[in-house]
């Protein structure tokens, strides 16, 4: 589904990603872990098409298409979803209007009829249950004045509405208390199928108790320096990142 080959990216001339290789197949959950500043969020941003990052080398293929060639909105329409680490507050744009515009633009791209107001609302009601999000929240402006937990819940709710093929969760656990974490993870798990894949970017192992990964990759200095199964995450939780840093730095 997703094939990243030798991906290099920099911001304002400073290289951040220095040769990422990653293969993700339908139905899989991949966790990307690593110390602060290792390039985790950069990877998520580059995949979603954030313009500040310049890809200097390598390729990303998504379902047979050159992902790097697509505008951010077309990546979303092809089925890539980024759950933001810091969802943006947008005063004056109602959550419902925003979502309806998004859903219908994605549907149009896929050659589907737009959803009328009635169908859209019933779809919304159904998906709202999934992430236990309150109707009141959605009648407000997009993310405006939402708590950290509410914002993250809203991200997963949007994901449920847009039904992506590849979901990238960028530090979705940051700022969440344990109850919110459970709700958000439940939502993600319910959306999982054999058809879609998930990349979970996180600093802590905690989230992986709820969203169990098939593979765990450790990112350090812009490269994947170690890959393993969920046991690797537990080992990191116990021993921290220093032993990996030492291993890598010694090899250089």
């Amino acid at each position: 589904m997703l094939s990243i080959k030798n991906l290099h990216a920099s911001i304002e001339g400073t290289p951040i990603l220095r040769g990422i290789n990653l293969e993700v197949k339908p139905g899989e959950v991949h966790a990307i872990m690593g110390p602060n500043g290792s390039g985790k969020s950069t990877l998520a941003s580059v995949l979603a098409g954030r313009e500040e990052y310049e890809v200097t080398e390598g390729s990303v293929n998504f379902l047979g298409k050159d992902l790097l060639d697509l505008a951010p909105e077309d990546r979303a329409r092809e089925g890539v979803f980024l759950a933001f680490q810091y969802p943006v507050e947008i005063p004056g744009v109602s959550s419902t209007n925003f979502l309806r515009t998004a859903v219908n633009q994605v549907r149009e791209y896929r050659g589907l009829e737009p959803l009328d107001a009635v169908k859209f609302l019933s779809e919304m009601k159904e998906k709202m249950k999934l992430v236990e999000i309150d109707q009141k929240l959605l009648s407000r402006a997009l993310n405006e004045g939402f708590s950290g937990g509410e914002k993250k819940r809203n991200e997963i709710f949007q994901m449920a509405m847009l039904e992506p093929k590849l979901a990238i969760l960028d530090e979705t656990d940051s700022g969440l208390d344990i109850d919110a974490l459970r709700v958000v993870s439940n939502g993600v798990n319910k959306l999982k199928s054999n058809e879609n894949a998930t990349i979970v970017v996180t600093h802590y192992q905690r989230l992986l108790d709820y969203i169990v990964p098939d593979y765990v990759h450790v990112l350090y200095k812009g490269r994947i320096v170690k890959s393993g199964t969920k046991e690797l995450a537990l080992e990191l939780e116990e021993k921290g990142y220093d032993w990996i840093k030492e291993e890598v730095d010694a090899a250089v």
């Binding site: 505008a71 909105e73 979303a76 329409r77 979803f81 980024l82 925003f98 998004a102 633009q105």
Partner: peptide, 10 residues
């Protein structure tokens, strides 16, 4: 970018 990342054209 947030809106674009949800599929809304620029």
């Amino acid at each position: 970018f947030y809106l674009q990342a949800r599929g809304i054209g620029k």
